[in-house]
Design a protein around this nucleic acid. Structure first.
Length: 745
DNA sequence: GCTGCCTGG
């Protein structure tokens, strides 16, 4: 055993490497590299947990050293030592996400004034799965237990403790931490990974960290990105040094079409068939825009190849999109089908995917990529405060990323279904950052909570349109989260603690006043989260029956839906589904028989528990109106109005709904559960598809509007319309009632 | 009479 250990130790030539670097570091940072507490350097003992290294540690170390980023380890540590901020550019396969944080750990002194715990290295990721899987890998590489010296932190799950020195976390989570620790004092070094993705949270962190760095000269920042926008980052961070690390991808040959394609779906299918007939073995990845298109394409591919007979090998076309159940998603990792008969032409796997395969999910073995050049993207219209999805051309950066998916395991080919000229002239260099495509009400609330008072002069890398910021401030002011000077109110402070949009946060905080916080908690949990999309039956978390089932099954699903339906609206229907789920002890069989999506309900329950904890923190009462009371549902509907009074529509004499104040013509989404057309409705979403729809709607009363939201329904600032005249009458009636009330007293 | 890319707290 002893000799074994010694032999392995000799492989550990990193020691010399690090020692040289340690020599160049300032004295306070130097001494204790690979030194145990007793001051004796012991190379077979893991510095982090004091245990002997396992043989596996040395095996992995050898592999790690072959990663491109190791070539520049010394250079990186020098640059880190001499600068507060570094921009590091490394493409796929460079090893930056796993190795750079470990390099930093070796070189940085983590003692804190508080002797009980060390300071942290934090590394952000845009996605939860990445934070979890990368931390697991790094814990293994460092030969420590996950959740101890190396951990991760994501919503619902903090897998770290007082001994943790390296923590991977989502960018949104770091933003949350900043709300209670504005100078991020627990951190010694922060690494923002995947910065090129420009998520909303990463963009806010950019601006925030720029300020924090000024106040914390001891804090260091490493911004890691894929190549394309690096110089822009460098400019933004006042000329921080830029380091480039090569990636390790196989070459990918790019092909363009001679002429523009009229129908990209038809062209994509044709290309699949051509590749299958003419190209050597290797799996194909096709990028399309949405569920319907993808299911359709899979069917057509399977059919067309079957029609070719046994001159070609069999294919297996598998769909991939985020709302596909996990068991179905697993199919993309299955191998290609075997030849039909021994010695026959080989089979091929064809993955037809949304953008999820561009960044979030990696499929090995892809040799051919088909890129029609489109994706569904979120766009925001600040004038009507509506986010919608639009099929639009992708950016050059996105096209580059897609092509790279063909070269992960061997040289590949990428077929772009547009002309080379179009690529150069028509595609934008970068995808618009999310911050320019979103409603910023929630972001502005977070910024205010973070102490950023002057939003206009906040140093955004890409400043949002002033109108978008104004709209956000206006919404927050109407909700009472900001006062007229734009300062955060006590209410706003509480709202900011909820992981919900401001309207929903307000509804929840107001709900105890309406004696129904238990029910509003359930409705909020059902509305938030992704599960709404899992259903084709409108916004109900019932099992989707979309395009895949018989008329009978559809009918059964409709009946199940009717069983939960509440005539006063979809919000109350959601509440019914939640209650029924709990009453039936969350039984999977019951869910199945009633077309209830168990996964969706589970996740809603999880969200609900988190919200309950936050309610408790602020001493917000958990209460319900007696179920037998006439007011049970009325109170719930009133509480909803307290948050959503800006999302109200009025039924005009013409039979159309007009949104209040904006006067947009909208239609009730056909998925609604109402049995009548109420005069006033609140809605949860405004969706632009074949028409302007409002989805998830409930019946509310005009009398409640003038009671609960008179500041918004201020007639002096109200466009002339039918709703205004109705409101005028209601205000007069209210005044008269009050007078009479006074007289009686 | 409809169906929506991805992601975060």
């Amino acid at each position: 055993m002893g000799t074994e250990r010694k032999r392995k130790v000799s492989l550990f030539d990193v020691v010399d490497d690090s020692a040289t670097i340690a020599g160049k570091l300032p004295k306070s940072n130097g001494g204790n590299l690979l030194t145990m507490n007793n001051g004796i350097t012991n190379l077979s003992i893991n510095r982090w947990n004091g245990r002997p290294y396992s043989p596996r540690f040395f095996e992995i170390l050898e592999k790690r050293k072959s990663l491109p980023v190791w070539q520049q380890k010394e250079e990186f540590l020098q640059v880190l030592n001499n600068n507060q901020t570094i921009i590091l550019v490394g493409e796929t396969g460079s090893g930056k996400t796993t190795q750079i944080p470990q390099f930093v750990l070796e070189a940085v002194e983590l003692e804190s004034p508080d002797k009980r715990r060390k300071m942290l290295i934090g590394c952000t990721q845009p996605r939860r799965v990445a934070a979890m899987s990368v931390s697991r890998r790094v814990a293994e590489e460092m030969d420590v237990t996950l959740g101890e010296e190396v951990g991760y932190s994501i919503r619902f799950e903090d897998c770290s403790n007082a001994r943790t020195v390296l923590k991977y976390l989502t960018d949104g989570m770091l933003l949350r931490e900043a709300m209670t620790d504005p100078l991020l004092e627990r951190y010694k070094v922060i690494i923002l990974d995947e910065a090129h993705e420009r998520t909303l949270a990463t963009d806010v962190l950019f601006g925030l960290l720029k300020e924090v760095l000024r106040n914390r000269p001891d804090l260091k920042l490493v911004v890691m990105s894929a190549t394309l926008e690096a110089e822009k980052f460098q400019d933004y961070f006042s000329g921080a040094p830029l380091m480039k690390v090569p990636g390790r991808l196989h070459p990918v040959e790019i092909f363009y079409t001679q002429d523009p394609e009229r129908d990209y779906l038809e062209a994509a299918i044709r290309t699949v068939v051509q590749i299958h007939m003419c190209e050597p073995p290797g799996d194909i990845l096709v990028f399309l825009t949405g569920e319907e298109e993808i299911e359709d394409a899979c069917r057509k591919i399977n059919k067309e190849v079957a029609n070719l007979g046994d001159q070609v090998g069999p294919v297996k076309a598998v769909p991939l999109y985020s709302t596909l159940p996990p068991t179905m998603q697993q199919k993309i990792f299955e191998t290609a089908p075997p030849p039909v008969k021994e010695g026959g032409p080989p089979g091929r796997k064809i993955v037809v995917s949304t953008n999820i395969a561009e960044t979030s999910l990696t499929i090995d073995g892809i040799v051919y990529v088909i890129d029609p050049g489109f994706a569904k993207q979120k766009v925001y219209n600040p004038r009507v405060r509506v986010e919608s999805l639009l099929v639009s051309p992708i950016s050059k950066a996105s096209a580059h990323q897609r092509a790279g998916r063909a070269g992960r395991t061997q040289p590949g080919k990428c077929f772009r279904l547009y002309t080379e000229k179009s690529f150069h002239n028509d595609l934008q260099p970068q995808t618009y950052p999310e911050i320019l495509r979103s409603n910023l009400a929630n972001t502005v609330l977070t910024l205010k909570k973070l102490g950023i008072d002057d939003l206009v002069h906040f140093d955004f890398m890409d400043p949002p349109a002033p109108e978008t910021l104004m709209r956000a401030l206006e919404v927050l002011n109407y909700l009472g989260a900001l006062d007229d000077e734009g300062n955060l109110t006590r209410l706003g402070e509480i709202m900011s603690e909820f992981p919900l949009d401001p309207q929903m946060g307000k509804m929840l905080v107001a709900s105890p006043e309406f004696n129904c916080s238990n029910e509003i908690l359930s409705i909020s949990a059902m509305l938030s989260g992704r599960h709404q999309q899992l259903s084709s039956l409108g916004s109900m978390p019932l099992v989707g029956m979309y395009h895949r089932v018989s008329k009978e099954a559809q009918k059964a699903a409709d009946e199940a839906k009717a069983r939960f339906g509440h005539i006063d609206g979809d919000h109350l229907t959601l509440l019914n589904v939640y209650h029924a789920y709990k009453q039936n002890q969350e039984d999977p069989n019951w869910c199945y028989e009633n077309f209830v999506n168990q996964r969706a309900l589970k996740s809603a329950d999880n969200v609900r528990q988190q919200l309950v904890r936050i309610m408790a923190r602020f001493n917000l009462k958990l209460c319900s109106t007696d179920f037998n009371s006439r007011d049970y549902y009325i109170n719930i509907r009133k509480a909803m109005l307290a948050g959503y009074f800006m999302q109200v529509a009025h039924l005009e004499k013409t039979g159309h709904y007009l949104t209040v104040k904006d006067n947009q013509v909208v239609h009730l989404h056909p998925s609604n559960c109402l049995d009548h057309k109420p005069e006033w409705v609140i809605y949860n979403e405004y969706v632009l598809t074949s028409r302007n729809f409002i989805r998830t709607v409930s019946d509310i009363r005009g009398e409640w509007i003038v009671d609960i939201a008179p500041h918004y329904y201020d007639l002096e600032n109200f466009p002339n319309c039918e709703a205004k005249r109705v409101l005028e009458r209601l205000y007069k009636k209210r005044e008269k009632d009050r007078e009479e009330g006074k007289n009686r007293k």
